[in-house]
Design a protein around this nucleic acid. Structure first.
Length: 590
RNA sequence: CGGGGCGUAGCUCAGUUUGGUAGAGCGUUCGGUUCGGGACCGAAAGGUCGCACGUUCAAAUCGUGUCGCCCCGACCA
């Protein structure tokens, strides 16, 4: 490809709409343009990268025995109504009607349609297991699209679905997919970490997310520095407090219960001190000596939730233990009605309204704690949860894991925090969709059973953005060889000088003949402009042909990522470049 | 949906407070000089100032409405 012909205009300045590196660089390098909020055009260079990623995905899916098919983007409402997700998805689903008034949606995912298909095609255990996948556009009317392809409304996704007769088969397919995902992201050049995840609204149990590590990532994860444990913070388990089993904590609690005097706590005035930090400072204690009492609405019903002052409520865990669909912090009026006090003074003792009380396990190990007094400018000190809490409360793991926590798996390491971009997720779905849509098979005895499903997604366009987040510098993108739009760019320093031009076109022709993906910068630009554009677009290798090297009969080979340079005799450029490409590809081979 | 900000040339932005001929830099086109990390000189093209209505002799500027974009939050396979 000649640069003068390439449909790509680079931007010198950062477009105001882009905040993070990947979004800015995709626009600046002429790979992508915005058509509407969260809707993008992919220009030739960007599309080549997407195709490279898709090719890697296809190769690894096919290697597992999965078979590709193509599903419709426009999907009938009935299927979604059968699984109940027509309503569950809500406003996030793009909906439309045809001329006859029939309802459709633009597929946000494809469980319904694939399960419907398999329900019609599969009757016998002899047809199982089977794994099917598709790569295509999906649509979600995100409340707030942002960060370019990291959270867009139209995006490219690979979804695979496994169909098994039993749990063992599902486990086996899940394992194969997990391994394929590790290979895919390794080949894409990503630094990533599989983490234990919550399976969210899609249903089922057992899930891992593949997180590309990046500060721009929207997901917070924790991982153990001693064992391999890693989890989304939404999911991460917390041990009962510090280094000990529950039994020990309970013993301690009982011992204290014996010696506590009634009431044992006393009321103190804390004028104007609302937050944990304010109260702690005012009373000269640490935040970890306070008990935070939050009033939540669980599907509309108020509950009191207690965590230690230096902890935060994990709303996902709360939702699970309460077995409700939505939990969110109550508004100020509700809180005031329940506690009988302004926001900031809620506590477990003396609530104005009896509501269910859920206590994080860490709270139960506290003694001499500070709580809100359920009255303006009032707190209680000397509270011992095992003694003083009103009867009827329930204890559970309700808090968000924090860096420094003891690892819940090995109980030796400490948790570290990191941020990640979710590029893939694998789920054990079970029979939720097969039961709803009647995907059954007959076993050897002629008995009917629901097919057991798994689903496995990879955000292709999101992966492209994640790669840039990890592979860029102040000059632009530095694509891994495996996904680069072109492997090499040939730059004559001055195309108007015949010797340079002739050498450059000859090298270009030879590289093309050798099957190398190569761009020739044939523009009549000054060298600085060409170098800047090459760096911005991120071609992994650059062959520079200029008067300096030409005097010696040499070209210069430069690696984009490292900046390393090497003089190569003109007649050896092709073989050296081929070697360099092979070396680079090797680096990303799992 | 709540809070905040912004819509002026392809891009980045000034001009709006205090109404009076539409601006700069970059990019683009043409001519020339240049040519190893975003050159220089000269000439030029390019905008119904998001849209609508209103106020006014006069609106980019003031008012109302509307659409769009960005950020924070709620939400999120």
């Amino acid at each position: 490809m000649r640069m003068s012909q390439l449909f790509a205009t680079t931007l010198r300045e950062v477009p105001a709409e882009a905040e993070i590196a990947s979004h800015q660089l995709l626009l600046r390098a002429g790979m992508m343009r915005k058509a509407a909020g969260g809707i993008y055009v992919f220009l030739p260079l960007g599309l080549r990268v997407l195709h490279k990623i898709e090719t890697i995905v296809r190769e690894e899916m096919d290697r597992t025995g999965a078979q590709e098919l193509l599903l419709p983007i426009v999907q009938p409402a009935e299927l979604w109504q059968q699984t109940g997700r027509w309503d569950v998805y809500g406003e996030e689903m793009f909906r439309l009607q045809d001329r006859h008034g029939r309802s459709f949606c633009l597929g946000p995912t494809h469980e319904e349609i694939i399960t419907w298909l398999v329900a019609n095609e599969v009757q016998s255990y002899r047809q199982l297991p089977v794994v099917l996948y598709q790569i295509q556009n999906k649509y979600r009317d995100e409340i707030r699209p942002r960060f370019g392809p990291l959270r867009s409304r139209e995006f490219i996704m690979k979804d695979a679905y496994s169909f098994d007769r039993d749990a063992a088969g599902l486990d086996e397919n899940y394992r194969k997919m997990y391994e394929a995902y590790a290979r895919i992201f390794t080949r894409c050049g990503l630094s990533f970490r599989p983490v234990e995840a919550d399976s969210g609204a899609i249903g089922g149990k057992g899930s891992h997310e593949f997180m590309a590590l990046a500060d721009a990532g929207e997901a917070a994860i924790v991982y153990c520095d001693a064992c391999g444990y890693a989890a989304n913070v939404e999911q991460a388990e917390c041990l009962p407090p510090e280094g000990d089993g529950e039994a020990e904590a309970q013993d301690a609690g009982q011992a204290r219960a014996g010696e506590a005097s009634e009431p044992g706590w006393r009321r103190v005035e804390t004028p104007g001190q609302h937050t944990v930090e304010e109260v702690a400072r005012f009373l000269h204690v640490q935040p970890r000596n306070l008990i935070k009492t939050m009033i939540y609405l669980a599907d509309g019903q108020p509950v009191a939730v207690l965590v230690r002052g230096d902890h935060d409520v994990n709303e996902i865990k709360l939702g699970h233990v309460l077995d409700v669909r939505h939990v969110f912090l109550a508004d100020a009026e509700t809180t005031e009605r329940v506690t009988g006090a302004p926001v900031g003074f809620a506590g477990p003792i003396g609530l104005a309204q009896p509501v269910p009380m859920w206590v994080d396990q860490a709270v139960m190990a506290m003694k001499e704690a500070v709580t809100g007094g359920n009255a303006k400018d009032t707190h209680l000190v000397g509270v011992d949860p095992t003694v003083h809490f009103p009867a009827g409360y329930k204890v559970a793991d309700l808090r968000l894991a924090q860096p420094g926590d003891l690892c819940p798996r090995c109980r030796r390491g400490r948790l570290q925090a990191a941020r990640g971009i979710e590029v893939g997720q694998v789920f054990k779905l079970g029979t939720k969709y097969s039961e709803a849509l009647g995907a059954m098979y007959l076993d050897e005895n002629g008995r009917s059973h629901p097919i057991i499903m798994g689903c496995y997604g990879i955000g292709v366009s999101r992966t492209m953005a994640a790669i840039i987040e990890q592979c860029h510098d102040e000059h632009g993108i530095a694509w891994p060889m495996t996904v680069a739009p072109y492997q090499v760019i040939v730059v004559p320093v001055n195309a108007a000088e015949a010797p340079q031009w002739e050498a450059a076109t000859q090298v270009y022709g030879q590289l093309q003949a050798a099957g190398v993906e190569v761009v020739l910068d044939d523009r009549s630009e000054r060298p600085g402009v060409k170098f800047k554009d090459a760096d911005l677009m991120g071609f992994p290798l650059r062959v520079t042909i200029g008067p300096r090297g030409l005097k010696e009969g040499k070209a210069e080979l430069r690696w984009r990522a490292s900046g390393q340079e090497e003089a190569v005799p003109l007649d050896q450029v092709v073989s050296r470049v081929q070697q360099a490409i092979a070396d680079e590809l090797q680096r990303y081979t799992p």
